[in-house]
Design a protein around this nucleic acid. Structure first.
Lengths: 236, 236
DNA sequence: AACCCGGGCGACCATCGGACGCTGGTGCC
DNA sequence: GGCACCAGCGTCCGATGGTCGCCCGGGTT
């Protein structure tokens, strides 16, 4: 029975590491923690910053120089943070909504097409994905509000939006009503995707590539890893 | 009329820059120089080492440290140079034949498959091309005679072998009989490929990707550039 | 034995994909 | 106004794709 893929997500074993800033109601969060986590998955946590220097050969990054203020050129004020909004809903206050977030991905697609066109004209290597070059092009073309870390951060959210708009919309609605922050919503987006991957023989790469809009985005490491642990846990 | 693609190659405007160590008989070399070269193409020459620091932002490489001899581990003697051989012909003397060269490409394909299998089992990113990782794997698995610069150097020769075995064989035969060195044969391999690209709407990338064996190899920069100048010169 | 041609491949480089964690905007009290 | 939260994104990093040119093997004289 396949009425709501969201339902299916519940049959997955979620990983609490995903539940950043662990708020309480574990039962009700879609795809939220219900089982004890797979130990190996702790290392999966992106941005965890928890235990001491995690993996061998991965030293901590250096402290950044504090941005000598007023140095020279016109430093853009940072974008307003995202909040969880329902489809069509405008964000209140100094916030951006999720429709805007997804539109950024569409814009990147347009920028990629421009870069591809230019590459073809000049007989250069033609990128099939959104690469550094595309982000650079976007910035130089005036879309200074687009940047790599941000876009990469929410790729899987956009993936859900592309692959199952109904489920994506429903998830937004639930998280908005519950007053969850963006981080929580973002974390929840993983589970429906893992369920979809399972229904596709655990081939997320293929899931991405088969979708017109998604094809141009790299599969996020964490999503691939999540699919892998689920697959190992339950066999194919 | 399409009897011998080699014939078609003659209608292309060849680039003398390709004709490394310019020997004489321009008329008879398949795809050899007949017209004055396109000026812009001089910059195309791979390994040209001619004029002063060519492009901005591309500084000359540093001099290599002279390999402190007898440092430690078992330095492999370098492979015997390739000579132009006909299909099935064994190389005489301390040389390797072209059948062996092409076999190296097949071996790399096998190594790629092993790397892909391992990646899939570990849930890691799965390469579709012969990457550094594949060369590393080959080396560690005992195929120390495989290395990146060599394989990349002859990719287009292997491409011709894959895409038109008859023409490839014929070219080998001609160059062997004429006593040409490997460099000359290698240079000549470009032209039939450019002709094929033309017949495919100048899409070499697609030409590579459509072929089972070739798909895993990056299109060499020089080949892409050659196709580009030809296309611009004669319009699509 | 001496020479020199030519090509194998070690090593270099710009740039890439990827990620961390500081900074400061923002809403709440 | 002050504070605490949290997420935007500047910046770093190991590894990649790509190539140059040094060094020396090898045939010739």
């Amino acid at each position: 029975r396949r009425e709501s893929a969201m339902m299916m997500a519940e049959s997955l074993t979620p990983v609490s590491a995903l539940n950043l800033n662990n708020k309480e109601p574990p039962q009700l969060i879609i795809g939220g923690p219900q089982n004890p986590l797979t130990p190996g998955l702790l290392a999966l946590t992106e941005n965890s910053s928890d235990s001491e220097d995690k993996r061998m050969g991965k030293k901590k990054q250096k402290r950044r120089r504090p941005k000598e203020h007023g140095e020279d050129g016109e430093d853009r004020p940072r974008e307003h943070p995202f909040i969880v909004t329902e489809p069509g809903e405008a964000a209140r206050g100094k916030k951006n909504g999720l429709d805007y977030l997804f539109d950024l991905y569409e814009q990147c697609g347009k920028f990629l097409e421009q870069v591809q066109q230019l590459a073809r004209e000049k007989g250069e290597k033609c990128p099939t994905k959104v690469t550094n070059q595309v982000f650079r092009h976007a910035k130089h073309t005036g879309a200074g509000y687009i940047n790599k870390p941000k876009m990469r951060h929410y790729v899987h959210c956009y993936a859900l939006h592309c692959l199952d708009i109904d489920q994506s919309n429903a998830l937004r609605k639930v998280y908005k009503e519950r007053g969850e922050n963006v981080g929580a919503w973002r974390g929840a987006c993983y589970y429906p995707l893992v369920a979809m991957a399972r229904d596709n023989g655990w081939d997320i790469e293929g899931l991405f590539n088969r979708n017109e809009k998604l094809r141009i985005w790299y599969v996020p490491t964490k999503l691939r890893q999540l699919c892998h642990v689920e697959k190992v846990k339950f066999g194919e």
